[in-house]
Each structure stands twice: as C-alpha cells, then as structure tokens.
Design a protein around this nucleic acid. Structure first.
Lengths: 343, 343
DNA sequence: TGGCTTCATCATAGCGCTACGATTTACGAA
DNA sequence: TTCGTAAATCGTAGCGCTATGATGAAGCCA
C-alpha cells in the first residue's frame, strides 16, 4: 500500500533545484554555471548568482562526485606533518590546490608501508582527483590498488627507479654525497654521519649511504656512522654527538641526517667546549627555520619542500584539466648546499 | 526514441551489487556488514568478506555520503601546519580519527577570517561529520554558516567567551600571566615581552596582554613589549633581542611569544656575550622538540597540543556515535610551566 | 501447539547532481 | 528570405549506496 511506503524526507534544505526555480533556469544550467561559468550567459549568470546568495545555497559535493565519478579532492599521504619537511610540502600544496577549490585530504603513514596501504584504500574510496604519496617504498598491494584505481598518482620527495605515475623530488644519495664532498674539500679527514630512525626513514638512510660511499672514496679519508632508533630531534642529536666523540675521539667533521640533529650537536659542542668549525665541522640537512640563526650559522643542504609542493600541485591541475601539455613524468627539483659558518 | 536515449555507462567496475551477488546476499546486507558488522550473521559475514576480497571491492564513499546525508570526513582548519603547534594537533587528530576510518580534510586559514570563511564554505559542501576551527575569532558569516550547517563544531587552542558548539584549549592571558609571575618570583624587575605577528596571531597577542598586565601589577616591576610583524622564527628572535637591548639596556628578563623566538634569543645572547640566566632570564612558549636540548635548557610553557587533538577527536567520535554522555561543551586542557635552566 | 519476540535479511525509493545528446534561439551569409 | 552554424539552455536517466519499514525464521514460554 502506498500509505505505508517509506517516504525518505529531503535532507538538504536548499538544493540546486530550488536555485534553478528562483533563477528561472533549469537545474542543468545552474550546474553548468558552477562548473563552467563561461558557458552560461551573463543574464542567466546574474540570476543564478542572486538566487544562490538569497537562498544561501551550499552545493553537495558528494552528489556531484557520485554523478561525475570523481571528486574535487586530493589525497595527500605523508609520514607526518610533525615533520617540517612534509608540513612545508602539504602547506604549499594546500595553498595551490585550494585556489582551484580542490580539497586536501590528509593521511599519516608514520613510515609504515602497511599503514600507507590502509590510507590508500581509504583514499580511493573518495574517488580522489589524485593521490599523493611520499617516497618510493610501497607495498605490492598499494601499487596494484593505485594502478587499478585509474587515478593520477604522484610520488614526492624522492627520485630513483620507475614511478607509479609521476614523481617530484631529488636523489637523496646525491645529498649525502654532496655533504661528503663539501667536508672533504674543507680538508676534513675523519668524517662521521649522525642519523636517527634510519630503519624506517629510508631517505635518511639513502643520504647516509651516499655520504659514506663518497667519503670513503676520497684518499686518506675515513667515514663512520653513529645511529639512534628514535625519531630525530635536538636531544637525540646531543646524545649522538656525545656517543660519536666517545667512540671516535679524533673526528673532525659530522654530517647530520637533518637539522634537528645538527641543532643538538651545536648545543652539545657548546656544553663540552668543542669549537665549531675549528675543532669540528658540522653540516646538516633541511635548512629549517632556525638553521641560519644558529651560533655558528649552520651549513646545511636545502631541499625545496615548497617547490615540491608547487610542482606537485601544478602536475595535478594539469592532469585534471588535461591541458594537453605532455607533463614530464619525473621532475628533479635538485637541492642546494648552503655554506654558512659551521663548516 | 529509446534507441537514441543516452546510456550512461557504469563508472565503477565493482560495486556493492557485485559483492552481494557473489556472496549470495542482498546489497542491503553488504551495506549493513560494512556499517554495522555485529548486525550480520557469521555465515553471511564470511561470505561477504570473501567476496570483497576476491572482487577487490572499494566502497564509494560519495554514494554512501549522499544516501546518508553525512560523510565520514572531518574538516580541520588551522592557520598552517608549518606551525608546530597545529601540526601536533592535526597529527594527533588524524591518528585518532583514522582509527575510526574518518578522513581528515585540511584547510589553512593563515590567520585570515576571510580565508577561514571560504574554507568553511568548502568544508560544508562535503557534509562533514564535524568542522574543527582554530581559535575563537570568526566572521559573522562563518558563525551563521556553522549554525545553519547542523554540524558539530569544535574551536581549538583557545578558551574565552561562548563557543559556537564545543571548545578545547586554554586561556592564553593566563599563559602570559604565568610567565610574568614566574619571572617576578625569580626576582626579575625589568621585564620585556618579545612577540611576532601579533596583529594576526591573536593568541600570541593575548599572551602578551596577560604578561604585561600581571608584570605591571607587581610592585617595583616594569614591563615593555618589542614586536615584529613577520612570522616568528629564530632569526626574528635574534633581531628582536638586539632591538630590545638597544631600547631597554637594563632589562633582566624576556618572555618570548614562542620557542622559535626564544631559540633566536639564546643564540643572539651567545653572540653578544650575554649570560643566560645570570644576566638575562629567558622564558618561551611551546616546549618545541628542541627546547630541552638548548644551551642553557629553555624554561618554557608547554601547551598540550597532543591532548587538544586527542580530546577533540574524542568529542567528535562521541557526538558521531551519540553515546549519550553529555560531553562537556568546553574542555580546559590548561598548560604546564617547565622550569629549566634559562630562567 | 500457538503466539509472541527477537534476530537476520531484504526491498526499494530516493539522496543531489552531472553528462551528454536534444532543443531552441540568434545571427550571419548567400 | 532562407539556410546553416554557433551559442545557450534543457531533459532526464542514472551514478552507488543507505534508511527504514517489511518479511521470514527461529526460539521460547505458556
């Protein structure tokens, strides 16, 4: 009986139908106005804008996404925004994509391929316009999901090997190599690499590899490594320096896997009376906001986190808008050695 | 003619209908299994799980959100994740909400009420399960949109006045007051507040107000302020200290609006030969990852960014699950004075 | 044995928008 | 004046899932 049929009430107080009625156009025209304003006449546009404002209409992006089989969302998966590198890239992407009314959806992998896989599954459920990952290490399931997902994929912050789709980053072994070359050119002969969490942070491990390889190739130069499994911060840096000097009393240079560690090294050197750079050269990685203000000012290698974010956003927008430009699959943003006082 | 009728092709290769067919249940049961597993028998659950795995089914959350008139997304709007305070809160919320398969959507307001308003409009288009804002300053339009939006709203990181819905944070004037009280109790009499970007960062401005008010109430104590319009970082901190000493040569204590500024102050004091804390006490705000490792270790006030994130996530989940507990509208997380060596 | 309750499962209309072909109108050229 | 083309607008089925009442089966108690 019709009397007992379920009547699902309308959930949204104002819909595109209401806007269309007030503006005296069809709902299709309202939809077109919101998606392609240039395809709608000035007269109709004014009436529609007035109706939207008067009715305080808020579009339902889920209905639009269902109908279009794609959403205006970009899933961005980084190890953590606690990490200043990824915070910078996320912030830059959010600014660029926000301008085009694309919503950034955030996921934290905490350097876990398993967690990244779970996040990719959740991401794909939203039919995102693109999926952004950090680095090149992914589970086989993640790779299959993304290949089957028919979605633009970017891998950021690391280059090497064949990307799933697009990649923006630089070669981390080259960062390590550049640090070693710099110290050797400064005349240092007893080099040390200080790293944290290298088991999970593969990019830091790659920098360590590049450093040791290049340093050990230099005539008359020795290079060792001292590590700690905890996440990198200044306190860990201080501990690492203390252990380094205990194990290798004659070191004359240290390269740190990031500037937090380098900061801790600088403070620890002050405490134990080691002069930088006279007695010990220090080089970091990251060029964080405090690096130039250190005493002495920190020599470091600057990764362009902002450029990575900007280029990634541009690739996404190009792919979405299909401007026809054959966007390069891989962008090498390189990095910059900033020679300051500490080396 | 039917022959010329448009046939919109099915977009998603595998849908819930396919899973239902393979598991030999109805699509309703599959939907129930995904939303409320306890309501489905063990036999049916096994068959459905097998079918999902075999067909590699990925749900379409937009269809679900359209049908349910709500999505499993939480919109989180912070000034920027470049700021470690908000990065910590976002990271904590992402971890808690991710466990319940709620997607964090990120927005950056850059301390602009206008930008926040735009982000709230975009947020509401996704029919989020909750909207999270930072601070208590919002445009009238933002307040109306959220009230009309029929959505749980949280305001984080600041208490004071009546919240739109729920609030988790602490009183920033009390932070400033606590810093002043601490310095006065240490016997300091010529106090200075060093702040950056106080025009936009209202919480930092509130801390400055609290500091000056309390310091000036103390007998025989004077207090001034030196500011810079740029975003706070260590380099700005160094500049502020240099200007502070130039303008007020007899100061014996500085309170910094955050620990980045304090870090710059520490380094600048080293450069100009000012002994901390003998000649100058320094107190910061934030307890960032480097604060304990400074030389001298930095006295600071620790805001519980992680607790704010955890409590916010709990309030959201309670509201979504409607557990019946009358969750308090306002949670004061307080803050902690960490007295280290610099004061 | 029958009736009532509970648990598991199902039916299906509809949520709000979009794609894309159809239709209408206006303008310019022959 | 007529025809063709371009611009603007419209029609409407369907995208994939869910809410909620309906239905059937099983179990328990009188």
């Amino acid at each position: 009986m019709e009397a007992t049929k379920r009547h699902r009430r309308k959930m949204q107080s104002v819909t595109m139908m209401d806007v269309a009625e007030r503006a005296q156009v069809s709902p299709s025209t309202v939809s077109l106005y919101l998606r392609k304003p240039d395809a709608v006449s000035a007269t109709a546009s004014r009436a529609i804008a007035e109706a939207i404002d008067a009715l305080k209409y808020v579009p339902n992006l889920m209905a639009g996404g269902l109908a279009a089989a794609s959403s205006r969302a970009v899933s961005v998966i980084v190890p953590s925004v606690r990490n200043a590198f990824f915070a910078e890239t996320v912030a830059t992407m959010q600014a660029e994509l926000g301008k085009e009314r694309l919503q950034v959806m955030l996921g934290h992998s905490e350097y876990s391929e398993r967690e990244e896989e779970n996040l990719v599954k959740m991401a794909l459920s939203w039919k995102p316009a693109a999926v952004v990952l950090t680095g090149l290490s992914h589970s086989a399931t993640t790779r299959r999901l993304l290949k089957d997902g028919n979605v633009p994929v970017l891998e950021l912050w690391e280059l090497g090997g064949e990307p799933i789709d697009m990649a923006v980053g630089f070669y981390h072994e080259q960062v390590g190599s550049t640090a070693a070359t710099h110290l050797v050119q400064r005349g240092r002969k007893r080099l040390l690499f200080l790293g944290a969490r290298l088991q999970e942070d593969r990019r830091a491990a790659l920098r360590a590899d590049g450093f040791l390889k290049t340093a050990r190739e230099a005539t008359g130069v020795s290079a060792e490594i001292v590590q700690h499994p905890a996440p990198a911060n200044a306190a860990i840096g201080a501990m690492l320096l203390a252990e380094a000097i205990r194990k290798y009393p004659d070191i004359d240079a240290v390269a740190c896997s990031n500037d937090h560690i380098a900061l801790g090294v600088i403070f620890e050197c002050q405490r134990i009376g080691v002069q930088i750079p006279e007695r010990l050269s220090v080089i970091g990685f990251g060029d964080l906001s405090f690096s130039a203000a250190c005493n002495p000012a920190l020599t470091t290698i600057r990764p362009p986190g902002d450029l990575i974010g900007t280029e990634a956003a541009r690739l996404i927008l190009d792919r979405i808008n299909e401007t026809g430009r054959a966007a390069p699959t891989v962008i090498d943003t390189r990095f910059t050695l900033l020679q300051r006082q500490s080396s």
